[in-house]
Design a protein around this nucleic acid. Structure first.
Lengths: 248, 248
DNA sequence: GCAAAAGTGTTCTCCTTACACCCATGT
DNA sequence: ACATGGGTGTAAGGAGAACACTTTTGC
């Protein structure tokens, strides 16, 4: 086996896992925009500054699981999408100690975001107008935002913001909120329908003051083919230690 | 500062940095194909198996620098392109110990690849026909290959395989080797020229038995806009500890 | 009936593809 | 001169943008 002496190789830097979370919520004008929940640091360094949810990586936990767990423990959220973003390890990013952070990014549904824990130490911020955050977390959120916006255009992650059935107007609203521009409803419909990613349920959504729109559902038989040979990231398959999320 | 007691948080897993290196070399039929240099493991675990060049992350070294340094120490190569690929941290990926590997991928010029160190413990392999490697390194190379192939289509990384001046036929040969299909010379020319990424030097390359082709050069004023808000990764700016690469 | 959103049809442009054809060099 | 790759021209097909138009509901 490996010697466990004081000069254990590779044991230098501290390994943390953090997550950038995005959800769509109405802004003051009622338009859907991107928001992200942050947690207040309750100890040094950078005490009282807002920061990404995260924590140290336990020896016996998968990276994704640690991301999902710390995210759930601090914000009470359960994401519908979770993917590794980047690993930040610059020498000066944390004062006093070398910290390498494996950062994930997550999408949560609007309904889920509504019932999330908020309080003195957890708060939602408009993703495009953040205050000065702890460490290099502003840079990290900016990068996550960029990834989200570029990825929405060529993959189907926008669906992760919605429930299992949705109207094309709702899906379009998601795209418009993420891309920050309006899209032609007619062309959007054709683009989505011809992509084959979504199937009509046959039902319509009544109750609106206008013509009732059709409801659609993902075609789950088509995978995202997104991470290539790595396949989809699975939180469920990863082992989680004794302490589970804060919510029952 | 931070207590250095036995329960130092985040100090569990060992942190390694590895790199997948690609270069173009002629295969047995003389066609340019992708090759990757691997190093033989000279100690347990997985002794004698071929593996990616890499090493433990020193406390005082940037992640990119560690990738560039270990790559240079083992293979003698200096890459023209180096980018973070993914961080692998699955629980079972290294027997006996939790190892988290931040993996980079690199491109080197063909000329550089020719004069690289080869020997008993360093050897080039065709990237599409690797033997069984140590740990999860087959999966890592497959993922790097996928990233290279998808990225060649929308960015200008193909240039990293070539010198500062090149003909469009050479650039096309790179694309064809990476994408594994032939491209129409006429359309390829127009696509590249209209992209504005390359400028004609005004010179031509004589010596061929046919019409001498024009020489081109990168337009270095245009950046790749590749990592978004993170900007280009810079090896030079990163601090490197005392021991430098094997080559002077 | 009227307003407003859902959904369809049509046209225009641009980009990619396929391929015919001319150009310039070494032998 | 001629073979061969370098380089230009051109027409067809497809995807996306713009926008007119029809459909369906609540009031």
């Amino acid at each position: 086996m490996v010697a466990t002496g004081e000069r254990m190789p590779g044991a230098g830097a501290a390994l943390a896992v953090s997550t950038v979370i995005f959800a769509l919520r109405p802004d003051e004008d009622g338009r859907a925009t991107l928001w992200t929940p942050l947690v207040r640091r309750i100890r040094e360094p950078q005490q009282d500054l807002w920061a990404l949810p995260g924590g140290w990586l336990p020896l016996d936990e998968e990276l994704v699981s640690a991301a999902a767990r710390t995210l759930g423990e601090t914000t009470g959220l359960a994401p519908t999408y979770l993917e590794q973003l980047y690993t930040f390890g610059e020498l000066g990013r944390s004062p006093g100690r070398r910290v390498v952070s494996v950062v994930y990014w997550a999408l949560v549904q609007s309904a889920e975001a509504e019932r999330a824990a908020v309080g003195e130490n957890v708060r939602w911020f408009a993703a495009d107008a953040l205050p000065a955050l702890a460490f290099d977390h502003n840079r990290i959120v900016d990068y996550a935002l960029w990834r989200l916006r570029t990825k929405v255009e060529y993959s189907r992650i926008a669906h992760a913001f919605l429930g299992d059935t949705f109207t094309l107007a709702e899906l379009r609203e998601v795209h418009e909120a993420v891309l920050q521009r309006s899209l032609d409803p007619a062309n959007f419909r054709r683009t989505i329908e011809s992509s084959g990613n979504v199937v009509a349920t046959g039902e319509v959504l009544s109750g609106s003051p206008h013509r009732p729109p059709r409801l659609y559902r993902y075609d789950s038989s088509i995978d995202l083919a997104d991470r290539g040979p790595l396949g989809p990231e699975s939180v469920a398959a990863a082992s989680v230690p004794t302490r589970t999320g804060a919510r029952p």
